[in-house]
């Protein structure tokens, strides 16, 4: 009777509308920004504007490379809008997966049936990862599709590698939200934790961009792990990916352990 991955399938079934919304957001952001590159970034005017700005601001925003195709896509989408969209989606899904289900009473009902807590935690996490991966895949596909028409000069595999870094970064924030949700059972705390770590990662990277003495921040900022080696220009940064996905995996494992040990109160 028990078919494969029941909790995972239920979770996807419950959230396809929200996934559709986030997909539209990602597609809209890419389709609005990227085709503008030939007229903004590609003709040298953009570089003049950037040159006229205070260098600290440019560094903070990560806009040094904005006049090149990969730099433009990195600065507008992967480093900013896409980062925001995927992190918000990941934190929202990660906090709902355990804490949200507990607060709504759904978790008690699920756990009263023939599923283990490990199964519930892992299948819920898998559902979040799959949804994020879908958004990453969609982003990569749209970027690749726009390389020719928008004169982006990006190597297609690099778009895939950078999307993997973006998804890993979002998964880390989502994984942290999942963990705090699994420990506390409180959705609001989970959201705060997930959003907090994303903000710290971004700010840490931005400070490291302009303060020479703060380079160590790159070692601890997941945002830096994802983007410091400019994967869209210089090719996929495998070490960064291993770090992002490794930490995300550890967070999921910790969330599973936490849920196994705790009373579910709702």
């Amino acid at each position: 009777m028990s078919r494969i991955l029941p909790v995972f399938r239920r979770s996807l079934g419950d959230s396809w509308r929200s996934l559709l919304g986030w997909s539209l957001g990602v597609a809209a952001a890419l389709l609005l920004y990227l085709p503008l590159f030939p007229s903004i970034g590609g003709n040298g005017e953009m570089q003049q504007i950037i040159d006229s700005l205070p260098p600290e601001l440019v560094k903070t925003l990560g806009y040094e490379q904005i006049a090149s195709g990969p730099g433009y896509v990195q600065s507008t989408f992967y480093g900013l809008i896409g980062f925001l969209l995927l992190v918000i989606a990941a934190v929202s899904w990660g906090s709902s997966a355990i804490a949200g289900a507990e607060e709504s009473g759904q978790l008690e009902l699920t756990l009263a049936h023939g599923v283990s807590r490990t199964q519930v935690a892992l299948e819920s996490a898998l559902s979040v990862i799959v949804r994020l991966a879908w958004l990453g895949l969609l982003a990569a596909a749209i970027v690749v599709m726009l390389i020719e028409p928008a004169e982006l000069a990006i190597d297609p595999p690099d778009a895939v590698g950078t999307s993997a870094a973006l998804v890993g970064l979002a998964a880390l924030a989502g994984g942290f939200a999942l963990l705090v949700g699994a420990v506390t059972g409180r959705r609001i705390l989970a959201i705060g934790a997930g959003a907090g770590i994303a903000v710290l990662a971004y700010v840490g990277n931005a400070i490291a961009n302009q303060v020479t003495d703060a380079q160590w921040l790159r070692a601890v900022s997941p945002y830096s792990w994802a983007y410091r080696d400019q994967p869209l220009t210089d090719g996929t940064d495998w070490a960064g990916l291993v770090l992002l996905w490794g930490v995300s995996t550890v967070l999921v494992v910790l969330a599973t352990i936490a849920l196994r040990r705790r009373d579910v109160i709702g």
Binding site: S104, G105, Q106, E108, L109, A112, H113, G114, V115, S116, Q119, G266
Partner: peptide, 17 residues
């Protein structure tokens, strides 16, 4: 889980959303 398959449970505060 194997034990809980043999049990039917109605929670005291059943909430369905």
């Amino acid at each position: 889980p194997a034990l809980r398959r043999r049990i039917g449970y109605v929670p005291g505060e059943l909430r369905l959303e």
